[in-house]
């Protein structure tokens, strides 16, 4: 399913199948196409209304995968399935399988909190807790059983350095997180996700609530995560997807439910789309 011949993708699109999977050549140097998450026949509905229908795709270890498409096509829903945040939504039903390193994360025996430690998430609107900067980072650590003072301090510093915030806030770690600027708050949220040393980071339009300057800083930061983390990012900014992503998945609304139209290497999806919807969308004609 993942690796198909170059010509077959196009044939499937013409046949009117829900999606096509393009040929996956080897990615950029940092990125070996080794499947970490396999989404298989995923459908999702809210209170009986379908939001996402029969989506299958692979997410590769250490790569940045962008999910693009018009609003309401189920990108954020897909993201929430990957860390089971869908559990919190009343009336939300998930069908199909999501295998993380070969284990189904939606099976009943999974420790959800441990899963969410492995799969971090960044939200569209920065949501630091109304606590001090330090407590924002220490609280999740303590929750996952890390209580040694020196280790806490070391982890806090490392994560803040990673997001380039250390020099800006090292003198006011006990100041209120909410007094930071929007861009700083978003980077703090990334640090808060990184401090748990996750393997995968889910990002739901992390730059869309920020001013252009902060947005550029955060985008550069996401670039630096490549290779160390698997990143799945929802974005409406096609330029951003093109700049940072290794892979891109294009979603569209069919019969009021989101479906995956095309999944490919990012460069190919933008330059040689095989589906006319994709072609129109990336050229800015639709959506």
């Amino acid at each position: 399913m993942t690796i198909t011949g170059e010509s077959e993708g196009l044939v499937e699109a013409v046949d009117g199948k829900a999606y096509t999977v393009g040929p996956l050549l080897s990615g950029p140097p940092c990125c070996r196409p080794e499947t970490q998450i396999r989404v298989d026949g995923l459908s999702l509905g809210y209170g009986g209304k379908p939001a996402l229908k029969d989506v299958s795709l692979d997410i590769y270890r250490g790569c940045i995968t962008a999910l693009i498409g018009p609003s309401g096509c189920g990108k954020t829903s897909l993201l929430s399935c990957l860390n089971r945040l869908t559990d919190l939504i009343p009336g939300c039903r998930v069908e199909g399988r999501i295998m993380l390193d070969g284990a189904d994360i939606h099976s009943s025996g999974v420790d959800v909190q441990a899963l969410r430690q492995r799969v971090g998430m960044i939200f569209q609107k920065p949501n630091p807790f109304p606590l001090s900067i330090r407590r924002n980072l220490e609280m999740p650590l303590k929750e996952h059983g890390i209580t040694g003072r020196s280790e806490l301090a070391a982890r806090v510093e490392r994560s803040l350095v990673d997001v380039g915030l250390w020099d800006e806030v090292k003198d006011r770690l006990d100041g209120a997180a909410l007094s930071l600027s929007g861009g700083q708050q978003q980077r703090l949220c990334m640090a808060r996700a990184l401090v748990l040393e996750p393997e995968i980071l889910l990002m739901d339009e992390p730059c869309s609530a920020l001013d252009p300057l902060s947005s550029a800083v955060v985008e550069d930061l996401i670039e630096t995560l490549r290779g160390r983390y698997t990143v799945v990012i929802v974005t409406h900014n096609l330029g951003q997807a093109r700049r940072i992503a290794n892979y891109a998945a294009f979603f569209w609304v069919n019969d009021r439910a989101g479906t995956l139209i095309e999944f490919d290497q990012c460069r190919r999806l933008f330059e040689q789309p095989r589906h006319q919807l994709t072609a129109a969308y990336v050229r800015g004609l639709r959506g």
Partner: peptide, 18 residues
Amino acid sequence: RLGAAALGISKASALVNV
């Protein structure tokens, strides 16, 4: 609430701390 849940923080701690 979502932020805390996404960090794998239990509802009990989210309540007490946030």
